[in-house]
Design a protein around this nucleic acid. Structure first.
Lengths: 328, 328
DNA sequence: CAACATTGTGGAACCGGTTACATAGAGGTT
DNA sequence: AACCTCTATGTAACCGGTTCCACAATGTTG
């Protein structure tokens, strides 16, 4: 591998001049520029990121910490982050935290050691104090960490309201809400949205909790529906639970959407492939990731973005688990 | 951030001794060891990966290049690689190539500049010569690059044979094979497996090609089945096409598995969630990723693994798109 | 024309580690 | 006592960049 001094030697200038040329900092005369350019081409020179990082204490690496890339929500998010990073010349390190604080802390330390430029963090859990000590640029995704950390979220409450209003408009009167684990703030907001939308009307509501997991949700919902056959509308706080509900209904001989309607939340691809395909409140996942990445890069490149938080509206996608004819 | 010389100063030894202590290289006396340990604790010292990389020209970063993390096959693979890397103290940079040689080349250069320790490469396309110049440890996943590059693949031919034999055993006699794009070697092997399995018996076969994409496959298969209603068994070279087939059949009023049976290939999670759930040849995706990562790390840590290639057997998962009663 | 600003360049310290080499004391051998 | 081998440690060069500072040449201004 050729180094900057090889280039300097061949171009008959000093390394300082070459460095200035490379970074477009300071003056470089026309003939120096010329000879440097030819030297670089001739030697096929590529500057070492590592050496530069050591000097500048900065790299072009972004750390992305998510719970689990296998969770169908995250691949698209990761892709959005990576695309945006790529566009701006950054590179992404992928970390799966499993929502485990120890692992999270470990990654944090590793990333720090590598002088990463910044971190995008998707922790759904409660605020972990160790994030407050980090002096790196951070953007929180999906869940706020701290009031002065820029955050990108979906408007969960609004989305839930959208879903619930729609269920009711489609004639459902006996609503079941499948919440996520209590620790997830996003799930709480969705439940709140559900409650505000269903409270005013003359509607019966129930709320049960389930992990965001197909199989677990299926079991819980199966048991519930068995004992409560009057439910005619389900709002699930995740598409995973919604699909669980679908399977549970199938096993119980409940026809969807004729006997019971279902609306999910998330907008993951699977929802479109299931039969009947899932009506859902789709988060704009790609935009979520893109926005977070852009926000982070802005911060990295010097702008202080204290307090800048962005809330992205989700969108109701009407498919086959709800009825076409609207009442009201 | 504290440095090694801070530690050396506080411990009243030289940086060389501290470095020796950290790397367990060379001799360190008992009292030096003691004072270094306390100094490190007191200062909360964490060595800089970057500085070390500059010296050693090695990092603990592994580059993972895949076509697209959004493709449902890759999240689990990426997770396996990351898990294994984590276990051995490595870190993963995620690169989406979109099967685009230019992007691939770009990433290759970027990764080289960062002194990554090695690269795991999943390119389904034809051999790209630029990989031959790379002097980094490489492992090819899913597709061989070169005879002397260690490679991890699924036994595609065997899997296809498994699927086809099973379809025939379940009574299908008029088989349609949905191949992948011609450029994918893995798809070719699957078609070959299909052909060897179906040739000997008294069976009619057809082969059509489709991208590995739900919607595209659905359209192509819909058109085909419309004109060829006698097909009673489909072997799809990917679960994506299999699901497309399922939807096409649904739209045409063909009952699955009563009128027509379907077997997919890949074993992605969606297959289990679709109705009826998909009988498929499951690749052991996690093991694929894990094996590749381990192979790479072995190489990184000094072992020359020329010619070491591993072929992992897939497994037939019988679900609901095939009939229970076996003929024969 | 003197004083000063602007442009162009190189020397050398520095980033935070690793490592070759020199050195020195302790213990063992003959 | 002379010599050798370990063990233990420090000095300093090096990895490949960035950047401060000094300095020179040239242009500009009053």
């Amino acid at each position: 591998m050729t180094t900057i001094s090889d280039v300097a030697r061949l171009a008959e200038v000093s390394v300082a001049t070459v460095s200035r040329y490379l970074n477009e900092s300071g003056y470089v005369g026309a003939k120096s520029r010329q000879s440097i350019e030819t030297a670089i081409k001739e030697l096929n020179y590529v500057p070492s990121e590592v050496a530069r990082s050591l000097s500048t204490k900065q790299s072009d690496i972004i750390g992305l910490i998510i719970p689990d890339i296998k969770n169908p929500f995250f691949p698209e998010l990761a892709r959005a982050v990576e695309d945006t990073a790529f566009e701006y010349g950054y590179t992404v390190i992928l970390c799966n935290s499993d929502e485990n604080p120890t692992k999270e802390k470990h990654y944090l330390q590793k990333l720090t050691k590598k002088y990463v430029a910044g971190i995008i963090l998707t922790t759904i859990l409660e605020q972990e104090s160790h994030w407050k000590d980090v002096k790196l640029p951070i953007v929180a995704l999906d869940r706020p960490i701290d009031s002065d950390v820029p955050t990108v979220t979906t408007n969960n409450q609004k989305g839930a309201k959208l879903a619930t209003d729609f269920l009711i408009a489609c004639g459902a009167t006996n609503l079941l809400c499948i919440s996520g684990p209590e620790a997830f703030v996003s799930s709480q907001s969705r439940v709140e949205g559900f409650q505000t939308a269903s409270r005013k009307k003359n509607i019966t509501t129930h709320i049960i909790e389930s992990a965001y997991d197909f199989d677990i949700a299926e079991k819980i919902i199966y048991d519930y529906l068995k004992n409560n056959p009057s439910v005619d509308g389900i709002f699930a706080c995740s598409d995973a639970s919604a699909i669980g509900a679908l399977k549970a209904a199938h096993r119980l001989g409940i026809r969807v959407p004729e006997d019971m309607q279902i609306v999910g939340f998330d907008g993951i691809q699977v929802g479109n492939v299931v039969t009947p395909s899932l009506t859902t409140v789709a988060q704009n996942i790609y935009q979520l990731g893109q926005t977070a990445a852009k926000l982070l890069i802005k911060q990295i490149e010097g702008q202080k973005l204290t307090n800048e938080s962005i809330c992205i509206d989700p969108e109701l996608i009407i498919r086959e688990t709800t009825r076409k004819e609207r009442f009201e």
